[in-house]
Amino acid sequence: MKRETIIAIVFGILLGAGAGLFVLFKTNSSEEAKVIPIEADEKKVVTQAATASTSQAQLVISEPLAGALVKENSITIKGKAPMNGLIIFQSPIAEKILNNDKGDFSVEVPLALGENVIQISVYAGSSTPQEQILRVYYLKEE
């Protein structure tokens, strides 16, 4: 076999192998690009869960939104509060008392026509409560 032929064969093999490796790596990198956002989302979810668990000691009202306008004469207040805290819901027409043994709470509070200023207070190991004021508006369905 001539020297030039051997060089041509080796060159051909190297070129083929190079092209093969290029295609292989390019495919892998595009697959990785698809995976990255999913991993990022998972991390985000984990971070949110961690934030929620650390803030569990605080009074958080998740429902209703402040200033909510409703057509029914009662409303369910949902949220989180320190475990085993005493929660007082005080409105101009009623008061509700709840021993928060689960951490999450859900209480139905009656509403008067018009504006309802509801104070939510939580006593947790202290006579100084955590407090939030919620304003909810009830108007009859016409």
């Binding site: 306008l69 409105s91 101009p92 018009g114 504006e115 200023v117 207070s121 006579s127 409560p129 508006y137």
Partner: peptide
Amino acid sequence: VFVTGPEIGESITANEVYRDQLYVVFSGK
């Protein structure tokens, strides 16, 4: 009063205006 209607920033276009009693709720010792 309280006002219902579309709200943009600190402006509201009133659909309805209701004159109501102001209640104050507080706690203390």
